[in-house]
Write a protein that binds this DNA or RNA. Structure first.
Lengths: 196, 196
DNA sequence: ACATTTTTGGATCGCACAATCCAGAACAGG
DNA sequence: CCTGTTCTGGATTGTGCGATCCAAAAATGT
């Protein structure tokens, strides 16, 4: 155990709290007061532990992406054939919009937060996170095409980009309205498109 | 002609310039200096003519929506059957992403700019603009279903929401990368979905 | 000439924000 | 007891912003 007075908070928990606040309000709209309140720590502790606001955000965004990748990876995994796993995902991801994604996808939200900025490092991080999630879908879709489950004259790239675009559109709108009815319609349409 | 010194700028032109700046950088990231520079007028003239920054933005957003509605309306009109008009739109809207929509759709961008704010009036305006554009697609799609051109066991509502979601996703990503290849793939997939 | 209106640009106000500094108290181990 | 670290909270700094005020100049009609 280190010398002096022990920290009164767990780093991961404080980071998770910051994640939630950034997720809900975005980067610029989140003030230091919002962060210290939701994290339950003082300004000094925040700067000592995480650096500054921007560094804290980048770390939170990376944690979000890890969590999202794990969740999507689980939903797309299983013993049944890849096409059925994708169909299952399309059926059940509507539930995510009721709980996890009520404030949209933090990565997609970050596009708007930094698109007009000159923070190339942040933008590269955002693009990387997007590519990572997209890769999970591309893999399953490619498998479903290889196995013949999906056979509609479309490449895996075309299908993946369509699914991702629709998902991005839904989570964008999720920020200002209840999109679950829309998401159900889109999921049904996409399954029809893919013959699932 | 009114009494004193005549205005040295045309209101519509100044508004169009403000529209472009807001469109490119978003609401918060656009400073008064950016506006006066792009509009070519002084602060005083701006406040006298448009009120304040927020009022100027609302007017610019409404003008954007008018223009967008007119453009989409034209692209979806013609003498050929509605299904073909929709297919034509899906083919040619990629060009819009090369010129008009390089910085995304101003309405969709505004979602992120005001989702976390408590400006309900602005949010209602955004929602109204979205509904207006969506109505244009819903009408054509309904016609194509009534005429039997589209017959894939999906309702007009389901198809419309899917097309809009995909489009929203594409224009969101357009802010940080060239999405024309993606848009081509998505358009091809959607046409396949609709049997066009 | 005169009145009216707009333009221009500087100066200023008020506010919110991130970030830093500081001093005192709290808590641990040596 | 002493030392090192953290927590607390107030005070402060610096910056950028929207917005307003002001005064002088410019351009029109009466």
């Amino acid at each position: 155990m280190p010398r002096g007075r022990p920290k009164e908070f767990v780093r991961e928990e404080a980071l998770a709290a910051a994640l939630g606040t950034f997720w809900e309000h975005g980067y610029a709209a989140t003030g230091l007061a919002d962060l210290t309140e939701s994290m339950g720590i003082g300004r000094q502790s925040l700067y000592d532990t995480f650096g500054d606001k921007r560094a804290l955000f980048m770390e939170a965004l990376a944690a979000y992406c890890d969590r999202q990748a794990e969740m999507v990876g689980e939903m797309l995994s299983g013993d049944d054939p890849p096409g059925q796993r994708l169909a299952r995902f399309l059926d059940s991801w509507v539930e995510l919009l009721s709980s996890e994604l009520v404030h949209g996808c933090m990565v997609v939200n970050s596009i708007g937060d930094f698109a007009a900025s000159d923070d190339v490092e942040m933008l590269d991080a955002v693009k990387g996170h997007i590519a990572r999630i997209e890769g999970l879908f591309a893999r399953v879709i490619q498998q479903a095409i290889d196995s013949g489950e999906i056979d509609v004259g479309l490449s895996a790239r075309e299908v993946t980009r369509t699914v991702m675009a629709a998902a991005d559109g839904i989570v964008t709108r999720a920020r200002i309205e209840d999109v679950r009815p829309k998401a159900r319609d889109v999921s049904r349409s996409l399954k029809r498109l893919l013959g699932l």
